[in-house]
Design a protein around this nucleic acid. Sequence first.
DNA 1: ATGATGATTGGGG
DNA 2: CCCCAATCATCAT
Length: 114
Amino acid sequence: MMKGRAVTAFEQRVYDQVSLVPVGRVTTYAEMSKALDCHSAQAIGQALKRNPFAPEVPCHRVIRADHSIGGYAGQTGGEKLELKLSLLKSEGVEFNSVGKLVLPEKLFLFGARD
DNA sequence: ATGATGATTGGGG
DNA sequence: CCCCAATCATCAT
């Protein structure tokens, strides 16, 4: 039988990290790259786009550093993005007409205490 | 092993 | 808005 592709150590660390983001909060690719001591936010996106545990692992709670929505399920536009938006909205996180996070204080910074 | 790709980012025009 | 360089894990050859 077909065995799915193995989750790499790096991906596992990314998933563990994003799992720390609470419901109703979001973080950024850049913030995660710092927390994981990786110097490439894009590498974080690479791992998240291949997340085999979505939405168990909340990869939809990761947005861009400029507070815009970012991508989802391998897409940067289209229906999947709509899904990401509705998932976040159902958790109380919203974006304005310019596509930016309405309440920046909802950003979750690793290592910061509330 | 080498080259290309990408859910990014910060800088510049 | 668009373009570019830097960065790096993963994928295709």
